[in-house]
Design a protein around this nucleic acid. Structure first.
Lengths: 334, 334
DNA sequence: TTGCACAATGGCAACGTTAACATTTGGGTG
DNA sequence: CACCCAAATGTTAACGTTGCCATTGTGCAA
């Protein structure tokens, strides 16, 4: 029957199988230097006792945890689910696990994420940065703890990876200019959002690169409501024939706002969003968007840590471009 | 300068501070039986050497990991982000960490999730069930591993927690009947989805309870496209004045489908969805939905494990009701 | 002065695993 | 038959931490 002992160790298995502890260990790791029939005997003993290797003993001996820590200041952020899918997939590939931690954002510092992780069984850590940490310039990763930041900002001591927001804006603006628009209006986001501000900068710079003075932007707050208000405001501007919204919810609201003022989309005004977050609910070709590969971002981060196998590999900075998708070519309800 | 040693242990700190290892340990745990000045000396040594307690040594000694494992067959599922937020919040509260694992769904069994977890440093595990595992009836949790399943189905050996899908359907159907509709049509989902089938069952039973024979349902596939098709089909049915869609994307598509056939929502037909997944993008009172508290589901699951502190508490089954929210009362773009 | 309680600290062992080295066994080869 | 080699298995020690018990020191009552 089931053992009543707290936990079954190699010692118990060894005793039952009539071999040494080392042979048990070798069987667990399927070493070729154990005779098949011995292995089978050991395996039978393991089954009978319900042996499972103890992680703590193993890590203590090996000095490695085979685990990557992920620190998030804000778990329910756009794209986090895809990123996690990427983390988990990459970890799986390397035989690693993922430890998820929510970090209090007061203060919003890399140090707080780092110290939170330092007591956990992890070999390296990933920090998802949504805002600018107060100590970004001065932060030093813990010695021996490979640290990857998910951000476009380059850090001298930590590898970084993120969606390329500049490229995103460049793609959108050039796509719209290619369609013959003379300029592109922008609905921005709260100033504390790093990625949003990078999109804004990209928009501004791309227009400048084409010799166009960026029009006055409309500041939104990520919600469709703010997009709606922006759409209504822009509907009265005769120079506004193309709008780039910093996310899809605002883009959607903007379309509704334009329509409420009698404008037609895309006949009168072209609208492009970012994030591909509406799934398939925009049913026609009114909205193009930029689809990011957050899964790949997540995989890159974990690959960097788990793939290095403890070797301190050099600092790298990776930007992953998004893909502009046009509503009607990708999905259409009709 | 920084120590070049692989890792700093209590021994190193003890040597530098001129105390025993035990006193260092006591200082780490802020034991009252260490003189304040000794503590300060030890703390100074810890700072100087950059000491951080080793998780493996600690867990090995204590026999506990203070970690809860979360197994998901599918990471990017509706509501998972909120659930994770709940996991992390509850874990935080108890001083626990969360270890996330993606389980291959071939075969889709609880056993595969369980064995995946058994080698990881966790004291208990949560399994998120989207479908019916092949071994649901026969599964036994690992001895000593408190196991919580996120599902509405009750398991004899594992505690369970989930959104109450029956209650969700009851709320929706009774809400619509209260508005004077004679019956409620249903747009369902792929048959492998447990929660979707439970919504369907709830819809059917609630109608029966009110003496109404459920009309023929329209099977969708979660996408707005399928909702669109369903809406067009139902637009021609004169008995159809109220539609309950199994998620918001289909509800949204359905509205567009109805409108494409000249029906007005909500004047001619009432539409209700589930999940509150559209955020604020449905800009008027055309759509009501049911908002689930997945954060609370996640918290309950982790509380059950981390709150028990290793004591094997009894099996419990928890259902958490959603809240029906009407578009116009909660948010309105106008 | 002696004895005793109590505060502060130290010594030792054990948690489960596995790398490194040591030993045994069997089967060839000179 | 002595020798050596390789295969199979065993022995030892160490990873870092902390519970238990032992020891030392200090102040106070008898």
């Amino acid at each position: 029957m089931a053992a009543v002992k707290k936990s079954v160790s190699v010692k118990d298995v060894a005793r039952l199988a009539g071999v040494s502890e080392q042979t048990v260990s070798r069987t667990v790791h399927d070493s070729p230097s154990v005779r098949p029939e011995t292995k089978e005997r050991v395996r039978a003993a393991m089954r009978e006792l319900g042996y499972r290797p103890n992680f703590a003993g193993r890590s203590l001996r090996r000095g490695k945890f085979k685990t990557v820590g992920v620190a998030m200041f804000n778990i329910t952020g756009t794209g986090n689910l895809d990123r996690m899918e990427g983390f988990a997939a990459a970890a799986d590939k390397h035989g690693y696990a993922i430890t998820l931690t929510k970090v209090d954002g007061h203060p919003y510092t890399l140090e707080s994420a780092s110290s939170r992780m330092s007591a956990l069984p992890v070999d390296g850590m990933v920090v998802i940065m949504n805002r600018m940490p107060a100590d970004f310039g001065t932060f030093e990763p813990l010695p021996g703890m490979q640290t990857v930041l998910v951000t476009m900002l380059e850090h001298p001591l930590c590898s970084t990876v993120d969606n390329d927001q500049f490229d995103c804006s460049r793609q959108v603006v050039e796509y719209l200019l290619r369609q013959g628009h003379k300029t592109v209006h922008f609905i921005s986001c709260p100033e504390r959002s790093l990625s949003g501000m990078q999109r804004e900068e990209g928009w501004r710079e791309t227009l400048h690169a084409h010799g166009i003075e960026p029009p006055r932007l409309v500041r939104g707050d990520w919600t469709a409501q703010s997009g709606y208000a922006a759409g209504q405001a822009l509907a009265d501007d005769p120079t506004c024939t193309a709008i780039y919204a910093s996310n899809d919810a605002m883009a959607y609201g903007c379309i509704r706002g334009l329509e409420s003022r009698g404008k037609h989309v895309p006949e009168d005004v072209s609208v492009v969003g970012v994030d591909d977050s509406l799934g398939d609910i925009v049913p026609d070709r009114r909205l193009a968007t930029v689809r990011f590969d957050n899964r790949r971002v997540g995989m890159w981060a974990v690959d960097k840590i788990a793939g290095a196998e403890g070797v301190v590999s050099g600092v790298e900075h990776m930007l992953i471009p998004g893909v502009l998708v046009e509503g009607d070519t990708v999905r259409d309800l009709r």
